[in-house]
Simulated assay, not measured.
Amino acid sequence: MKQAVLTGHQPINDINVYYEFYPNKTSAKTVILLHGFLSSSFTFRHLIPLLNQDYQVLSVDLPPFGKSDKSHRYEYSYKNLAQTVIKLIEFFGLKKLTFLGHSMGGQVVLNILHLMPELADNAILLCSSSYLKKSRMPLIITSYLPFFHLFVKFWLARTGVKKNLQDTLYNHSLINDEMINGYLQPFLQDEIFVALTRMIRHREGDLPSKVLNNIKTPCLLIWGEHDKSLPVHIGERLNRDLVNSELIVLKESGHALPEERPREVYKHIKSFLEVS
């Protein structure tokens, strides 16, 4: 049975944001999905059908990734990305919200919980970006050089999509052409590299402990035991800094939990949402 989905671009906060909305006529709760760095809604393609059995789902391509616009004017800070998601939710008039963020998307979720705590009933953080510092000043200054975006493109090309997937997945046998092409597609045009240059310039650093301590929203943290990008000790520290959280570590898993362990992630989410 084909899944019902409404897709489109919505002009919000001076940029066109791509979204996928999966309705559920039997549930008033909506799960908002926010992906990680160099990713898009594609990363949730295995998790969405599972969540949609019980909840409405709204997956957002955070600018400049996926099918969202790449702008020369937009500010790609976490705070502005959070405000963009907030305005998109207000536009759709959604209530009873659970935010789910993977990697960088987790940091955007934390910014939303900080900026507008009343918006979320609860949140799920999958290997969430945490405690990363602001870009160093020499890099920020260098980002203003003409054609710096070509250096960004060269850097990404050197590592390559397959190598990045090998770094984020514990089980390399899952890597196939569909996965490689899905992650490669948004990077076939040069506009993304110009926008990534602006993101390097605008990234203000992750929320500090003193801010995290004030977030009261119930949070479920799910981590991969073999996460190389954000090791488990990051999740343990985040669990200590958030006053209303619990941490689950999945064995034989890496950073890309939505790819690697969608059923286990869904099981833990459902249990969490049933009691929180």
Score class of each variant (00 low, 15 high):
171 N>D: 15
194 V>Q: 13
171 N>L: 04
156 L>H: 06
186 P>E: 05
214 N>G: 11
187 F>G: 11
159 T>L: 13
185 Q>D: 14
203 R>N: 15
182 G>C: 00
204 E>K: 01
214 N>D: 12
204 E>T: 01
193 F>K: 06
159 T>C: 10
174 L>Q: 10
163 K>P: 01
151 F>G: 04
181 N>C: 11
163 K>D: 02
208 P>C: 08
216 K>Y: 14
142 T>W: 15
163 K>L: 08
158 R>L: 14
149 H>Y: 15
143 S>E: 05
212 L>V: 05
197 T>C: 05
194 V>W: 14
196 L>P: 02
167 D>K: 03
157 A>G: 12
217 T>P: 03
142 T>A: 15
210 K>D: 14
171 N>G: 03
145 L>W: 10
148 F>D: 02
216 K>D: 13
145 L>F: 02
148 F>L: 07
180 I>W: 10
205 G>W: 05
143 S>R: 01
154 F>R: 15
151 F>Q: 12
200 I>E: 07
150 L>P: 04
172 H>T: 08
167 D>M: 12
173 S>G: 02
217 T>M: 08
170 Y>W: 11
217 T>V: 08
213 N>P: 03
197 T>A: 07
168 T>M: 15
173 S>D: 13
212 L>Q: 03
188 L>H: 06
160 G>D: 00
144 Y>G: 09
179 M>I: 12
215 I>Y: 05
200 I>G: 01
201 R>D: 02
200 I>F: 00
178 E>V: 13
157 A>W: 11
195 A>H: 05
169 L>R: 09
204 E>V: 03
201 R>Y: 09
166 Q>V: 05
172 H>V: 08
194 V>C: 12
160 G>I: 02
150 L>S: 03
206 D>W: 00
161 V>R: 01
170 Y>L: 03
213 N>S: 04
192 I>V: 06
181 N>T: 11
193 F>Q: 00
155 W>S: 14
180 I>G: 04
216 K>G: 04
160 G>S: 11
217 T>E: 05
215 I>Q: 05
190 D>L: 08
155 W>C: 12
149 H>W: 13
170 Y>R: 08
214 N>F: 08
201 R>Q: 04
211 V>M: 09
176 N>V: 04
211 V>W: 01
208 P>A: 01
215 I>M: 08
208 P>E: 09
208 P>R: 07
193 F>L: 03
173 S>C: 08
179 M>L: 14
158 R>Y: 13
175 I>F: 00
157 A>H: 15
164 N>I: 12
196 L>Y: 09
178 E>Y: 14
165 L>V: 07
206 D>Q: 00
204 E>W: 01
148 F>H: 00
169 L>N: 02
159 T>V: 10
179 M>H: 02
209 S>A: 14
160 G>P: 06
190 D>Q: 03
144 Y>A: 06
187 F>C: 04
205 G>T: 05
202 H>S: 09
